[in-house]
């Protein structure tokens, strides 16, 4: 578990070093996510020879993600310091959020369904067809 946690922190560290070193306007942890994807690919290569290698990583990651909402709370409480902005622009922001979320949901689901009907006329659905793997 400690090894897995070290790997996750290391990926974040690499991401931060790249983002800050090159001055990219991308958060370090996002680049760390890409590094982590690559690391998982490498792990599966090694697993062909040592099946038990890196098995803990999945459990550690799931542990972190299981209570993701807890992690937003400290930042969320920060709204205490922003009550002036919220009293002044609260309604405008709320309208923007509601309308924008509505539009985004509709546009995204329609785009997905439209393209999947164009491309998956023969093989329907994502559920039943995993027998080939």
């Amino acid at each position: 578990m400690i090894a897995s946690l070290t790997l996750i922190l290391f990926c974040q560290l690499v991401g931060e070093v790249i983002a800050r070193g090159l001055g990219w306007p991308i958060p370090g942890p996002v680049l760390g996510m890409i590094v982590m994807l690559a690391a998982l690919g490498v792990r599966d290569r090694i697993r062909k020879y040592r099946p038990a290698f890196g098995r803990q990583v999945d459990a550690t990651g799931q542990g972190l993600l299981a209570h993701l909402s807890l992690l937003f709370i400290p930042a969320g409480v920060g709204v205490m310091q922003r009550l002036d902005i919220l009293t002044e622009y609260g309604w405008a922001l709320l309208v923007a959020l509601v309308v924008s979320t509505f539009i985004t949901l509709v546009v995204t689901v329609l785009a997905f369904v439209f393209v999947s009907r164009l491309t998956e006329t023969s093989a329907r659905g994502g559920e039943g067809s995993s027998a080939r793997e």
Binding site: L5, I8, L9, C11, Q12, G15, P27, G28, P29, V30, G32, M33, I34, V35, M36, L37, L40, G41, V57, D58, T60, G61, Q62, L64, L65, L68, L70, L71, F72, I73, P74, A75, V77
Partner: peptide, 20 residues
Amino acid sequence: AKFVHFLLGPATVALAIPLY
């Protein structure tokens, strides 16, 4: 609360696991 807040970074990295 910053100890909880810190975990946001590693949790972002861990999003790679379900994606993978």
